[in-house]
Write a protein that binds this DNA or RNA. Structure first.
Lengths: 205, 205
DNA sequence: CGATTTTTTGAATCATATCAACGTACGTGG
DNA sequence: CCACGTACGTTGATATGATTCAAAAAATCG
């Protein structure tokens, strides 16, 4: 019984994406094969961009391995990191993807990474073909929305120190895998200030 | 021809909600009547809450007249305003509505207001019954998501002064209809700081 | 009109930005 | 494999903007 399942998984290529889609229980094996056939595996080198300001988002990626940062840059060349994406995250600019308007965000690999990529047309036709796929996507948008609301609350109510401690507790991998300057840009402070903050924290311990 | 249309509108009650639903062009008159029949008109007094922290969001409102603020309160009783809602806005906590989890937000009338209210079950069954109604809702969630992303960018990149000037230019009604302390809570500063900021701005002119 | 809420003003304090310089780690080509 | 250059992180001094506590002035409501 498990032997057969394992065999099935191997036939479908044992990727994190496959694993995720199977875990939802929403699709039959043939549907799974159909869905997976629309994706291509891509290797992305550290510091390479998969989306840049001004472009129109034409594809959606699923992170197999590695990490990405979504950030934007203001007139004074200050960078602000919206979020980091690790294994099993979907990565895209949903707004640009939907409306086909130029994005204001940049998405860059922080480490050498591997992603599964699907282009916009295929993504949208999957949503039309499989209602569950659409529902899943809507859920994702809703969750992103809630996460953004939450983010604003945190920025408002918590000190930078609290938010830093929260971050390294909730996502210890961030500390290990993301350079400090990007973490500073995520917290909304200058790298110098994060350096001083860390000193304060670790001296008092 | 226009006479007949006007007559039709009167039969459906000439509300902003009716107007909005008609303007989408998504529904026939009988569908419109069906949809509108699920809504009830409610009068909300200034400072009255239509949702409070800890409750589960069980209804969705459309603002006919008046204004609301969505805000949350931290442990030190500091209030942060997420956004203001005026005429023709949908008002609800989408996250609590969807997941039936307790909300962390409060929604309060800033002025004496009139809203059209639909309860959760009716709202969801309308989404199942009319695909266009569901699409419209998804669009709304997506737009809210983009607005929140944008909000974070603004907080990061713009000074409080810039954001204040942006606000009163983009939504002059805010300045007229919303008390200053709530505007301060929207900008993320203390009322005292906004008062000083305003003095600085108007002295330099 | 009086009572309550809202806004303004003052002084002291705190956190972060900024400019500048120095140390350290990293990986790339010789 | 080492040396060099570049990118990254640390530290110092100073400046700026917002907070806090306190209290007065102004506006609003019943």
């Amino acid at each position: 019984m498990f032997g057969q399942q394992r065999c099935q998984e191997i036939r479908l290529l044992m990727t994190r994406l496959t694993n995720f889609l199977q875990s939802t229980g929403w699709f039959s094996d043939s549907q799974l094969t159909d869905i997976l056939s629309r994706f291509n595996t891509l290797e992305i080198k550290r510091k390479e961009h998969i989306l840049q300001e001004g472009e129109i988002c034409k594809r959606v990626a699923y992170v197999e391995h590695g990490s990405f940062r979504t950030y934007s840059v203001d007139d004074n060349l200050h960078e602000s990191v919206t979020h980091f994406s690790f294994e099993d995250w979907w990565v895209a600019d949903l707004h640009s993807l939907e409306n086909q308007t130029p994005t204001v965000y940049n998405i860059q690999a922080v480490e050498d990474s591997t992603i599964e990529v699907i282009n916009r047309n295929d993504f949208f036709s999957l949503m039309e073909k499989y209602p569950k796929f659409k529902d899943g996507h809507i859920q994702l948008v809703r969750r992103s929305h809630a996460a953004m609301m939450n983010r604003i609350q945190e920025i408002r109510f918590k000190s930078v120190e609290e938010r830093y401690l929260d971050l390294i507790q909730r996502q210890p991998q961030t500390l290990q895998r993301i350079p400090q300057q990007y973490i500073a840009a995520y917290l909304g402070i200058e790298p110098q200030s994060l350096s001083r903050l860390r000193k304060r924290i670790f001296d008092n311990k």
